[in-house]
């Protein structure tokens, strides 16, 4: 993960205002320019970056009016707050935590190739270790080899699976699979769906039908960590079509800094619950927005810092 690199650039830009004698407009502009460049290189949505710049400036200028306030601290805090606001949907990750002893039906949705099938299995394996009884349902009837892929992942992680080589209606398979596993008292039923994009309305209609037929307790929007400026619009379209409750960002083991996916949080208003960090079934981590920004800035002590 190269998140550190982004964190370093931002931390360095913030250092700049610490060492400057006086913080005038010029110093502030230079600092903000560096921060914005780092964010843009990380694929954060251009409009969100512009908003961050404006908000921080406004707060810095307001600080001018108040006497005795430390402008540097105010600027630093404004930047950190804005970054947290960017990745923090306001939604609490705890609300998307699974509950034992009740039937959880989780539906994975997302763009083509973003990592749904792989992540669905990882998610099952992760919760199996926590004592859940997961099961996987393949409701992707479109992609060549989709059922075999899910099957092989399910065997690797020793999770029961359901699917069909002949049925072409994903809503039917999904309903059958969920019903079967509910009868078998599996408490975590994971439904994998085909990749789709907002430009093709028929695919979104299909997604709504699958959701209708399985009545998921949680819809997880999966997103590729390397996605660029298309992230926001796509994420918003998914959110407008189904009730996205959580986001998982995949492929964070690559060089990309995941900013496109991070800005999609603003569009879905759903928290990032996990990140994927590799192709193997155990390469999967929990995600926490505030700790993330702390790590981004290379600070272990961000909590104290933010509360100052």
């Amino acid at each position: 993960m190269v998140l550190n690199e982004l964190g370093q650039s931002i931390a360095k830009a913030l250092e700049g205002i610490k060492t400057a004698n006086t913080i005038d407009d010029k110093v502030l502009d230079a600092c903000l320019k560096d921060i914005c460049t780092a964010l843009l290189q990380a694929d954060i949505n251009v409009k969100l970056v512009m908003k961050l710049r404006t908000n921080v400036k406004t707060r810095a200028n307001n600080a001018d009016k108040g006497a005795g306030l430390d402008k540097r601290k105010i600027i630093e805090k404004a930047v950190v707050d804005e970054l947290i606001a960017m990745v923090d949907s306001g939604g609490d990750v705890k609300t998307v935590e699974l509950k034992k002893g009740q039937s959880n039906v989780i539906m994975f949705v997302g763009l083509q190739g973003c990592g749904k099938t792989t992540t669905a299995s990882k998610y099952g394996a992760f919760h199996k270790k926590k004592g859940f009884k997961p099961a996987l349902v393949c409701a992707d009837t479109f992609r060549a080899g989709a059922f075999d892929q899910l099957k092989q992942n399910a065997s690797k992680t020793q999770i029961p699976f359901y699917g069909s080589y002949t049925e072409t209606d994903p809503a039917i398979i999904a309903a059958q699979g969920v019903e079967k596993f509910k009868k078998e008292k599996r408490d975590l039923i994971i439904v994998d769906t085909s990749g789709r994009h907002k430009q093709e309305e028929a695919l979104f209609e299909e997604m709504r039908q699958v959701a209708e037929s399985v009545q998921p307790t949680l819809v997880i929007f999966t997103m590729d960590g390397s996605i660029g400026q298309a992230a926001f619009d796509q994420a918003k379209a998914f959110r407008d079509s189904v009730e996205v409750g959580a986001v998982i960002v995949t492929k964070m083991d690559g060089h990309a800094k995941g900013g496109g996916a991070l800005s999609a949080v603003a569009a879905t208003q759903a928290p990032i619950a996990f990140i994927g960090t590799g192709e193997h079934m155990d390469e999967f981590e929990r995600f926490e927005a505030k700790a993330f920004v702390g790590r981004l800035l290379g600070r272990g002590d961000w909590k104290g810092f933010v509360n100052k």
């Binding site: 843009l40 763009l111 660029g228 690559g254 060089h255 990309a256």
Partner: peptide, 14 residues
């Protein structure tokens, strides 16, 4: 993929 952001540069370079 046309969806990729800044990582396009690094992918092609490497």
């Amino acid at each position: 993929e046309a969806l990729v952001g800044n990582d396009a540069v690094d992918q092609l370079t490497k």
